[in-house]
Simulated assay, not measured.
Amino acid sequence: MEWDKLWTINKKIIDPVCPRHTAVIEERCVLLTLTNGPDEPFVRIMPRHKKYEGAGKKATTFTKRIWLDHEDAKSVSVDEEVTLKDWGNAIVKEISKDRDGNVTQLTGVLHLEGSVKTTKLKLTWLPKTSELVNLILVGFDYLITKKKLEEGENFTDVLNPCTRFESAALGDSDMRNLKPGEVLQLERKGYFICDVPFTTLSKPIVLFSIPDGRQQAVLK
């Protein structure tokens, strides 16, 4: 049996109960300024899992300036309406790029009366605040680069040169409360287990990726 078929059992076990949090990959993350956003940040208390009360609550901060993953930012177009998860819709009005064509900044307006059913992109985001925590997201890959060795084939010829990879990220402030061994889902990024919890702002939280049967690793 293929490993990915076994790993789908992970998802069936943890998805109904593990809390949801948000992270943005730090490399080239993009600031979206909402010109009609809140002049003063405000906080809403929200469930950590919408269908499982036992996961507890979390505090989500809403601000005029929010962080997006670069991969998401480069997917949007001028005048496109997108959904900001757990907030509502916004319309992108301006896209700034550097000389190499990389998106560096977005400007938009909230359109909370818009329907989330009509948007193509549902984006995770983080508020631009000093309360965010630093994360190291750790993923693992196969030891060899093919599923099955042929007869007489030397396994040293197909060794994977990189079986561990890391991504620096920003995480929501409630992740300060994670305990070692606690399992969580990072929205749109997958499932993780806390290896090193929060101690100080100078030391990142370390999260290990939990395989869930997907063919493509999100962190690569």
Rank of each mutant, 00 (worst) to 15 (best):
I13F: 09
Y52G: 04
S202Y: 07
L201P: 13
L110K: 05
L201G: 00
T119G: 02
D86V: 01
I14F: 12
S209G: 01
A59C: 05
L184C: 11
T60I: 09
D4Q: 12
Y52K: 04
R20A: 01
C18A: 15
E94P: 01
R44M: 08
Y52C: 12
P204T: 09
R65L: 00
G37V: 00
D79K: 15
N177R: 15
K128W: 00
S167W: 01
L31R: 14
L68D: 05
L159A: 08
E150H: 13
T107R: 12
W67R: 13
K11E: 15
R48A: 14
G213N: 10
L32I: 07
K58G: 03
S96V: 10
I13K: 06
N89S: 10
A169T: 09
L110H: 01
P41G: 08
P38W: 04
E81R: 09
L121V: 03
R99C: 11
L137H: 04
L201K: 13
T107A: 04
G88R: 04
Q105N: 13
E113N: 11
L106W: 07
L184T: 09
G171D: 10
D98W: 02
Q105R: 15
E153C: 11
D79R: 12
E27H: 12
V138M: 04
K64H: 08
S202P: 01
I95F: 09
L184E: 04
T118C: 01
S75H: 08
G54V: 10
K122G: 00
L219P: 07
I9S: 01
F42M: 09
L68N: 05
G190I: 06
P197N: 02
G190T: 09
P47G: 03
L34A: 02
I9E: 10
L132S: 08
L186Y: 06
T61G: 04
H111N: 14
T118K: 14
Q216D: 15
A90K: 05
D212T: 15
P19W: 08
I205E: 11
N177E: 13
D79N: 14
R48C: 11
L112N: 04
C162S: 14
F198D: 05
T104R: 10
T145H: 07
F155L: 14
L178G: 05
N102H: 14
E26C: 04
V17A: 07
L132Y: 04
E27Y: 10
G139H: 06
D195C: 00
V103P: 09
T33P: 00
D174S: 14
K58C: 12
L123K: 12
E150R: 15
S130P: 08
D79F: 03
T145F: 03
N134V: 00
K85W: 01
K117G: 02
R65P: 02
I9K: 05
L126A: 06
I91C: 07
T119V: 15
